[in-house]
Amino acid sequence: MVEYAQEAVKQGSAAVGLRSKSHAILLTLKRSTGELASYQKKLIKIDDHVGVAIAGLTSDARVLSNFMRQLAMQSRMLYARPIPVGRIVQSIADRAQANTQQYGKRPYGVGFLVIGKDETGPHLFEFSPAGITYEYHAHSIGARSQSAKTYLEEHHAEYEDCSLDELIQHGLSALRDTLQQDKTLTMKNTSIGIIGPATSTVTGASTSKKTNFRVLDDEAVEPYLREMRIRRGEPESGEVKEEEDTQAEAHESEAAAGDAAAEGPTAAASDGDGDVQMQE
């Protein structure tokens, strides 16, 4: 029953994708099972020019993304050509569709948002367990993704001409709408996947010259989150403060290193202080 598989996708945490003339991006909300656990990775690189965001059963996503990697490599080896994005998506869709009508098989319990860039420009596709693919300007899947869709639909006319920064801000706003009342986007639970030239003007954002698929995690997403808070006129929350602390700490340990040259024992003591501060 495909409907149950599609239900599994809805249970997965949300993923948002947007596309402009020059870029395609994915934003995902990562979950962790508890304080001591790490956050579950949601973005998978398939090839230099293709990446996916998953919602649903991670193990099924691994099977399908492995298959996509194989196809991508095959295309590069046999034809010296990066595989056209639409074709790689269609290939997994065909595979998923076969599972819905073959005796003894079950559908995949995972949905993908696929971004990629080929000779025809950047693309955003959705893949669902039913074996259907659609191309979108902007889309979202996973838990409470309807709220993100509502936001995306409100601003649908803007994406085409957006810069990378604006596109990310739209994405963050949409992703934020999928959160429960008491939750916020943090650098721990937010991941951003980008395809297209790095043209960011946000302070602190990384500026690599690559146009390949890349994932921003942890510290790398913080500049964008801060930008989002500034734009919304929100107070700069604990996240930002924490980073300021880290910076202060970094200065301190630099100073400590200077001390170390002069007198060893004192330096060791101030290092210890630094550690304690970090844990606060």
Binding site: R81, G86, R87, D118, E119, T120
Partner: peptide, 12 residues
């Protein structure tokens, strides 16, 4: 026919 992607060039 499905995606209108340019065909294989001489290099490919």
């Amino acid at each position: 026919l499905g995606d209108d992607h340019p065909s294989l060039g001489p290099v490919q």
